[in-house]
Write a protein that binds this DNA or RNA. Structure first.
Lengths: 195, 195
DNA sequence: CGTCTATTTGAATGTACTCAAAAGCGGTGG
DNA sequence: CCACCGCTTTTGAGTACATTCAAATAGACG
């Protein structure tokens, strides 16, 4: 199991001794997804919290009119799950789909509860994850209100370096909240600017 | 001290015995603000988590170009604070200002730590607050991307019933992410619709 | 009452969308 | 290996949504 990346990710917020580390690793499951395969479908209960080892996922939501809205991407070293559904074990609002062949390490809600019980450090990890997620989201709201599509595109490039070459433009457009056609014309204008 | 509303708010997520309740209340401070007075200025460290007993606050952010963006309103029974600044004791990103004469009950970061130590119930309260805040925010992001200004205005009216009569239109416009002029013309069209 | 700020109104402009059609590209089967 | 199919991306014209700027009107407060 390719456990190095996830341990490194943990190390950013908490410190574990070898026993705790092993216990944590023993609770993980590995899963491989093909391009286009779903890790979670809207409506299902989100039973796992997943860490992307390789590949890339997209988290999206289908509005009543039937069009898709991408909420976030999760390339290597990102966590992906429907936070609300995982926390409350309610029906998921979002779907999570692989946009490349992807390998994840996931921990079930049950095992996470075990972990929280036995290794109190993980309370902190969890709290920080919520906190970080909230703060990041709050800034995104603010930025969406503040900036025009071309600025949001630049912010996307900063947030996800290199990802624009791995993700379909229609998905980037959806993430930015513009139509694929408009993103295309934005890119054209941007190209011309450089001459 | 008008402690009934805040106890009712707590009761929505946790149950306290009389001793815990008294301990909690002993950690609160009362503060009265005049219209236009600031509870927090951007750049300061947010040392308190405040609960609005009466009146109304607005949480807003000043962009580099100097224009204000309202992030949320906090009328009676809402909590208001800069979550990031309070958690990390870093400089606040947001300002919090009274838009009516307002009365708040606030708890300092220090006292909150005490509380978390002595009454573990509050871990849950805190986690739920983050969780709820996150989920609400996530939906707002999605809605902002999905819907037009007039729909966002309706959502505002649902979220904050009756508040449109207490808040300046320029602040509502800012919250919705449109210009005051456009909100004004939206309302005119809406009026005409009813004939 | 006068001053200051908020709101309304209108015209001109810009930003982003819809619809339609053409071109590009990737995967699949022959 | 190539041809074809389906989906994505590009391009363009016309339109709708929202902004800017300017000026007039209305309200709030001392």
């Amino acid at each position: 199991m390719p456990s190095q990346p996830i341990l490194q990710n943990l190390a950013e917020s908490i410190r574990l001794d070898p026993v705790e580390t092993d216990f944590f690793l023993s609770l993980l499951q590995e899963q491989k997804l093909r391009r286009r395969e779903y890790l979670l479908q809207a409506g299902e209960v989100c039973r796992y919290q997943s860490f992307v080892v390789s590949g890339c996922l997209k988290v999206s939501y289908l509005d009543p009119a039937g069009s898709e809205h991408v909420v976030k991407f999760a390339p290597e070293n990102w966590w992906a799950f429907d936070l609300e559904s995982f926390a409350l074990q309610s029906g998921a609002f979002y779907s999570i789909q692989a946009i490349e062949d992807t390998e994840v390490l996931k921990i079930s809600r049950t095992n996470m509860d075990l972990l929280l019980d036995r290794v109190p450090q993980f309370e902190k990890f969890n709290r920080l994850m919520y906190q970080t997620a909230y703060i990041a989201l709050q800034r995104r709201v603010t930025q969406n209100l503040t900036s025009k599509a071309d600025e949001r595109y630049q912010q996307f490039q900063v947030k996800y370096p290199g990802l624009q070459n791995r993700v379909a433009q229609k998905d980037i457009a959806s993430y930015l909240g513009v139509t694929p056609e408009f993103l295309s014309s934005m890119r054209r204008r941007e190209m011309l600017m450089h001459f």
